[in-house]
């Protein structure tokens, strides 16, 4: 079971001070490639030790939920080598994507990706986008019903 496999890893991450994670990032990356699924979680490195990023981890403070849609407002730049997660998110958000899909694609916990996405929306790298057509709840339900029946 996958959750069992990652249990100890997360616990180990929290036991070490965040300085260690920032310094050891290149090593951690090579571990990623080496161990695949057993990659080491670097919660502090990923948010670049940015206290603001931690502050926006929750849906209530960032205004983002798992199904919020964002789209890249710029192409990945040269400075992205220090923050590969941001480069990867930009690369996956060429078309409007939900936060949870981006999390699955960059293989990071959805709460962290929400934090990074919120920071990227704040600095203009990503744009939030609403649906092209705003539908009422009943219209959505009827559309879903018709869509499901015709599957």
């Amino acid at each position: 079971m996958r959750t069992d496999g990652v249990h100890g890893r997360g616990a180990a991450a929290s036991a070490l001070p965040e300085e260690v994670f920032r310094r050891s990032e290149p090593d951690a990356r090579s571990h990623d490639e080496e161990f695949g699924q057993e990659r080491f979680l670097r919660p502090f490195a990923v948010t670049a030790g940015d206290p603001d990023a931690h502050a926006v981890l929750g849906p209530e403070s960032s205004g983002l939920d798992m199904l919020s849609l964002v789209v890249a407002a710029r192409v990945p730049g040269r400075h992205e080598w220090l923050r590969p997660e941001r480069g990867a998110i930009l690369g996956h958000a060429l078309r409007a994507r939900t936060v949870v899909e981006l999390a699955a694609e960059v293989r990071l916990p959805v709460g962290q990706v929400r934090g990074i996405v919120a920071a990227m929306v704040a600095d203009g790298s990503l744009q939030r986008c609403g649906p092209s057509r705003s539908l009422g709840r009943q219209d959505i339900l009827h559309a879903v019903l018709v869509g499901l029946r015709s599957l």
Binding site: T3, V6, G10, A13, V100, G147
Partner: peptide, 12 residues
């Protein structure tokens, strides 16, 4: 302590 939990989702 922190632990992680897998969340699976599909799309239609």
């Amino acid at each position: 302590t922190t632990t992680t939990v897998a969340l699976d989702f599909g799309r239609i």
